[in-house]
Design a binder for these strands. Structure first.
Lengths: 241, 241
DNA sequence: CGGCTGGTTGATTGGTTTCAACAAGCGTGG
DNA sequence: CCACGCTTGTTGAAACCAATCAACCAGCCG
């Protein structure tokens, strides 16, 4: 089951045949465990391998010289930790585990033959990349033009949709392992202020966040508050049930 | 000369042979003019063509329902308006001309044969894309964690470096056609505040900005203030003078 | 039990927005 | 040619959102 998360995710972008899914499964190598707060990028790794998160949450983050930290991307189960990054001579940011992680790899050659054999897989992978970039753009919009409460609401919407695409939501609620400190580093604020904003969202009856689980009580209300329009995620296909 | 801007830019990413440069020049089709403030994306266009800016500045921007605007990317002479975007079913943002523009196109098939014939061109194009993404990440960092004056200083540094890569700087100064309103939409602030921040940078003796031209008086001072580290641009090759 | 991490609260400070007005530059039409 | 309108830049005062500093509490684990 867990190995199919990637197929599930890619099906948001293109219809995959049974053969596609079989090939995908075969291409996935051994999975490994990464401890929370550990760095995901060990130098010794195959630079052409594609890393896939099977379980847990990771992030891409940048640290300024004086200690300020900004998380620039969140990687959820089913997400790819784009490998192209390794092509760059020097890494300009860190990929770290926010929770304990299960990560699988598709070796470089296996990935190559995958996109050569299947046009729909190639298409899906490309679209996945475009979606990731679009998410990055939308974060820029949030940080630049959305108020504190709108940002938080928007992030909740986005993460809920992304988790829904891989079947990890359950009747309006989803796992949410981020601490308020993590949220602060995602949204460019302090954890103190995240705390107060969160309370406001709660008191408005829009969400609940307890025990590492997020529950959205009023989807449309939250989306309206956040100016959330899921178009940018470019999930065109319905995820298989 | 103008047609070589793209070659110049790509040489920041990979060494290009004379043949590469010749092929590149041949691949470039007719250039067209776009008026300032016009939309760059006309529906009737070849969705597989690669657009290259030969002259002028353009931007990618998102408009929120209530009128707030955020510029999520700036495209300078020599830059590609990534074509993959057109693969997406619905455009989630606008590409607009900030100044009058000269744009050339590489038709889809020509681009395809280009990257097939030359490994260095393929490499350069891929690196260019990675650089664009890294810039997007750095903007996220700026908006999230840099103060107003740091943001402005950082943007100045980035644009100066990017213009230098295509030979458009001249002894510490470069063209700078953005209005304070544009700057506000880039940096997520109001033009009023941009104005005051700008005055502070001026009074610190770091920059001058007059007549659509930016002059940086103290490069290292500006970079230190901004926590600017050009690594993220990934210009590994020196641009051929 | 103590120490740690993560969450909560209050008071104060400060960076930015907002609103409003005005000056300077520029193109256009009367 | 000047007047007019429009865009761009500039300034001031007030209001506001979010950061800062500083406690303190709850839960968890060794």
């Amino acid at each position: 089951m867990t190995a199919n998360l990637l197929a599930l995710k890619l099906q948001s972008f293109a219809r995959l045949s049974d053969v596609d899914q079989l090939w995908l499964k075969e291409a996935l190598g051994q999975s490994r465990q990464v401890a929370a707060h550990a760095d995901l990028v060990d130098q010794g790794q195959d630079p052409h391998a594609v890393n896939v998160i099977l379980d847990g949450w990771a992030c891409r983050s940048r640290l300024l010289a004086d200690g300020r930290r900004q998380i620039v991307a969140l990687m959820l189960p089913g997400d790819l930790c784009d490998p192209h990054i390794f092509l760059l001579d020097r890494m300009d940011h860190t990929i770290g585990a926010l929770t304990p992680l299960t990560v699988a790899q598709i070796p470089g050659p296996a990935f190559q033959s995958l996109v050569e054999r299947s046009a729909s897989l190639a298409y899906a992978f490309r679209r996945e990349g475009l979606s990731a970039i679009a998410i990055q753009r939308e974060w820029t919009v949030s940080l630049g033009r959305r108020s504190g409460i709108e940002r938080l609401a928007h992030l909740f919407c986005e993460l809920y949709w992304r988790l829904a695409a891989v079947g990890l939501t359950d009747g309006g609620s989803c796992p949410f392992p981020l601490t308020q400190n993590d949220l602060a580093d995602v949204l460019g604020q302090t954890s103190v202020h995240i705390n107060r904003t969160l309370q406001e969202l709660r008191s408005m009856g829009l969400v609940a966040l307890r025990g590492r689980r997020l529950t959205i009580h009023d989807q449309t209300g939250l989306a309206e508050l956040a100016y959330f329009d899921p178009v940018y995620l470019h999930f065109t296909q319905k995820a298989g049930q």
